[in-house]
Design a protein around this nucleic acid. Structure first.
Length: 109
DNA sequence: CGGTTGACCAAGT
DNA sequence: GACTTGGCCAACC
C-alpha cells in the first residue's frame, strides 16, 4: 500500500494541485500557506514530486504552474518550452519562460 | 547533530 | 542586468 508519509512535501503537493487552471503561483506563496518560509523546501519537494503518477490515490501536481517570485519558470528549464506550451494552452501568456504574476498570480488565500 | 543540497528570495555590488 | 552574499527551511548523509 502507499505509505504517503505526512511530510512537508505532501502539503506542498496538495497546494500545488489546488492551483486553478490558467493561474500560476510562486514557491514563496506556497511556503506562505504552509506557515513557513521554506520556499527552498517547496522547490525540493517539487523536484521529488511524483507528478508523473496520475493515479487515483496519487496527487497530480502541475509543476508547470509553479514559478519563481520573479515570474520566471523554474528549474524545469530544459523542458521549459514544453511547459510554456502547456501554460499557454491553459490561458497563461508566457514570454521567454516568464509569466505575468500581476495577471496570473494566484492569490486565492 | 552538523554539513551539504535544492526546481529559492532579496538585497547589495 | 549579471554576479555575489546572506538568509531561509526541510530533507538527506
Amino acid at each position: 500500500m502507499f505509505v504517503m508519509e505526512q511530510s512537508f512535501y505532501e502539503r506542498v503537493y496538495k497546494i500545488a494541485s489546488k492551483i486553478p487552471k490558467g493561474k500560476v503561483t510562486t514557491y514563496r506563496e506556497i511556503a506562505r500557506k504552509l506557515k513557513s518560509r521554506a520556499y527552498q523546501a517547496v522547490g525540493t519537494a517539487m523536484n521529488k514530486n511524483p507528478y508523473s503518477v496520475k493515479k487515483k490515490n496519487q496527487i497530480y501536481v502541475a509543476c508547470h504552474r509553479v514559478v519563481n517570485s520573479n515570474g520566471r519558470v523554474g528549474g524545469f528549464a530544459s523542458e521549459t518550452k514544453n511547459k510554456v506550451k502547456m501554460l499557454k494552452r491553459e490561458g497563461v501568456e508566457v514570454v521567454d519562460g516568464k509569466v505575468d504574476l500581476k495577471i496570473y498570480g494566484w492569490k486565492n488565500f
